[in-house]
Simulated assay, not measured.
Amino acid sequence: MSGRPAGPVRRERGGTSRVHDGSFTGRTVPGRGLAAELLVRAGIPVFHQGQLPQAAALLDRLDRLDRLDRQPSG
């Protein structure tokens, strides 16, 4: 690929859609973890393991774009 960020796939408990609420009780609330949030802010999509078809579709699109970019012009 041409250096485009493809997007990491993280475990659901890895902080892509739920985070601990700060009470140290193990309770979680909707939200992103720090790493996931920083990646998203940088424009890199983050997927959880339940979104593997979406991640694969993004990789396919990026691969097609990369092949178009490498075609000789003219």
Rank of each mutant, 00 (worst) to 15 (best):
Met1His: 09
Ser2Gln: 06
Ser2Pro: 05
Ser2Lys: 02
Gly3Ala: 11
Arg4His: 09
Arg4Thr: 15
Ala6Thr: 14
Gly7Ser: 09
Gly7Tyr: 01
Gly7Lys: 03
Gly7Cys: 08
Pro8Ala: 15
Pro8Asp: 08
Val9Gln: 04
Arg10Cys: 12
Arg11His: 11
Glu12Val: 13
Glu12His: 08
Glu12Phe: 07
Arg13His: 13
Arg13Met: 14
Arg13Val: 15
Gly14Val: 12
Gly14Phe: 05
Gly15Ser: 12
Gly15Met: 11
Thr16Leu: 02
Thr16Trp: 00
Ser17Trp: 08
Ser17Lys: 13
Arg18Ile: 08
Val19Gly: 05
Val19Asp: 06
His20Pro: 09
His20Tyr: 15
His20Asp: 15
His20Met: 11
His20Arg: 15
Asp21Ile: 01
Gly22Leu: 02
Gly22Lys: 03
Gly22Phe: 02
Gly22Ile: 02
Ser23Leu: 10
Ser23Ala: 11
Ser23Gly: 05
Ser23Cys: 01
Phe24Val: 13
Phe24Pro: 00
Thr25Asp: 05
Gly26Trp: 01
Gly26Thr: 04
Arg27Met: 10
Arg27Trp: 04
Arg27His: 14
Thr28Trp: 01
Thr28Arg: 12
Val29Tyr: 01
Val29Met: 07
Pro30Asn: 09
Pro30Lys: 09
Pro30Leu: 10
Arg32Ser: 14
Arg32Phe: 01
Gly33Trp: 04
Gly33Asp: 10
Leu34Phe: 07
Leu34Asp: 15
Leu34His: 14
Ala35Gln: 13
Ala36Leu: 04
Ala36Met: 06
Ala36Thr: 15
Ala36Ile: 08
Glu37Trp: 00
Glu37Val: 00
Leu38Glu: 14
Leu38Asp: 13
Leu38Gln: 15
Leu39Tyr: 02
Val40Met: 04
Val40Phe: 00
Arg41Asp: 15
Arg41Phe: 01
Ala42Glu: 10
Ala42Val: 04
Gly43Lys: 01
Gly43Gln: 03
Gly43Ile: 06
Ile44Leu: 03
Ile44Cys: 11
Ile44Ser: 07
Ile44Asn: 03
Pro45Phe: 01
Pro45His: 03
Phe47Ile: 11
His48Pro: 03
His48Arg: 09
Gln49Pro: 00
Gly50Ser: 13
Gly50Gln: 08
Gly50Thr: 08
Gln51Asn: 03
Gln51Lys: 02
Gln51Glu: 15
Gln51Tyr: 01
Leu52Gly: 08
Leu52Ser: 07
Leu52Arg: 07
Leu52Met: 14
Pro53Cys: 06
Pro53Lys: 04
Pro53Ala: 06
Gln54Trp: 00
Gln54Met: 04
Gln54Lys: 02
Gln54Leu: 08
Ala55Cys: 06
Ala55Arg: 03
Ala55Asn: 05
Ala55Lys: 01
Ala56Pro: 00
Ala57Gln: 13
Leu58Pro: 00
Leu58Ala: 10
Leu59Cys: 08
Asp60Thr: 11
Arg61Phe: 12
Arg61Ser: 12
Leu62Ser: 03
Leu62Lys: 02
Leu62Pro: 01
Leu62Glu: 11
Leu62Thr: 05
Asp63Tyr: 06
Arg64Ala: 14
Asp66Gly: 10
Asp66Arg: 10
Arg67Leu: 10
Arg67Thr: 07
Arg67His: 06
Asp69Ile: 03
Asp69Glu: 13
Asp69His: 05
Asp69Tyr: 03
Arg70Phe: 06
Arg70Met: 12
Arg70Ile: 10
Arg70Cys: 09
Arg70Trp: 07
Arg70Leu: 15
Gln71Ser: 07
Ser73Gln: 13
Gly74Asp: 12
